[in-house]
Design a protein around this nucleic acid. Sequence first.
DNA 1: CTAGGGTTAG
Length: 468
Amino acid sequence: MVGGLMKFPGISTKLLNISIDSLCKFRNLEKAESLIIDGIRLGILPNVITYNTLIKGYSRFIGIDEAYAVTRRMREAGIKPNVATYNSLISGASRNLMLNRVLQLFDEMLQSGLSPDMWSYNTLMSCYFKLGKHGEAFRILHQDIHLAGLCPGVDTYNILLDALCKSGHTDNAIELFKDLKSRVKPELMTYNILINGLCKSRRVNSAIWMLRELKKSGYTPNAVTYTTMLKLYFKTKRFEKGRRLFWKMKEEGYTFDGYANCAVVSALIKTGKAEEAYECMKELVRSGTRSQDIVSYNTLLNLYFKDGNLDAVDDLLDEIDRKGLKPDDYTHTIIVHGLLSVGYTAGAEKHLACMGKMGMNPSVVTCNCLIDGLCKAGHVDRAMRLFESMEVKDEFTYTSVVHNLCKDARLVCASKLLLSCYNKGMKIPSSARRAVLSGLRMTVSYQAARKTHQKIKAAIECDTLMYP
DNA sequence: CTAGGGTTAG
């Protein structure tokens, strides 16, 4: 291949870069690098783009250190890193939420006399947002960008709008959207971000209004738009509407990547329609998308468990392994929950222990499942031991534990935990409160229930909370 | 750099 490039001096580096790019896209980084070396031997000199492409690949698929190591080889080859080089490194660091690394690279870029561009600032800003450091992110937006003589572009606003939506400030996002239209032209992605934010906060009418705005601006909804609306329909239990939309998506070729199929299948599983779910999954298997990512496998795995098809589960786990896919938090949760649902409590516990041995940290959700399952199987003490060992706990953890403690008549413990939730300002469903209060009334005393009710009132600073 | 799919309690 490289030999052939020699016949076209002048464009040979361009062709080399194209080859490098496609190799990198398919994670063939070693091959890409050996192609560079072959090229040099044949007199085809790599340029800054060649190395930047390689760095982008390393930073995306391997690691930031490995990507950085390429910059050293690049310098040895007499090529100086440019802003794009640093941007690739910075985005790799940002993807892994390595803020210090991002800042360090920024410094290094400045010290080598390079000026960060809008892309660099966008990445930095999005890293701050992803870490929940909104103040810092806004400082980049309102100060640093202007000090650098740059102007926020539509991409900058996309990042900002998405962060606002994801942190529950959908109203601010809408406000900003109305305001920014005078400065930049919203992209299709801008609309999708907002529609998604509105759907997630269940603002159905606003989402539909935004969809109309999207069309009014001359854009055509794409697979992302439709998948977002599809989820909204399922969430609001408008199954017929969802079914019709999915049908339309299939007809118009919007289901090529399997995203919509996964959404539909999980909705079908939740409504107990395993048959239809299998039907919908078949298509995914046929299209080959299934072989590409763990999400489709997780969906299918969940389906097999819910259907009690444990042989298929076994086969599928083997297949995941064979394909070299990496099980993620969802996979582990589905396995633990699935084992519990078929009554195999010991297996679920074993799975968690295995994860620990392999150096994996089970997620909060995985632990929540096991806690709940252990309680329901009558092992409340073991569940409580796991509960106490958890570093991160969420609403689900507490809700489940409180309910299960009530069922087990451990009211003192349950009411203590419930109160700690209110004191932390944690949102906990009122069903948990009712379970504790009625439990106290039944098994302790009416006075104890009243007293706890008073404490809850004080904790949430509310006088009108009715005593059930 | 930025948008959509998959997991848990009641």
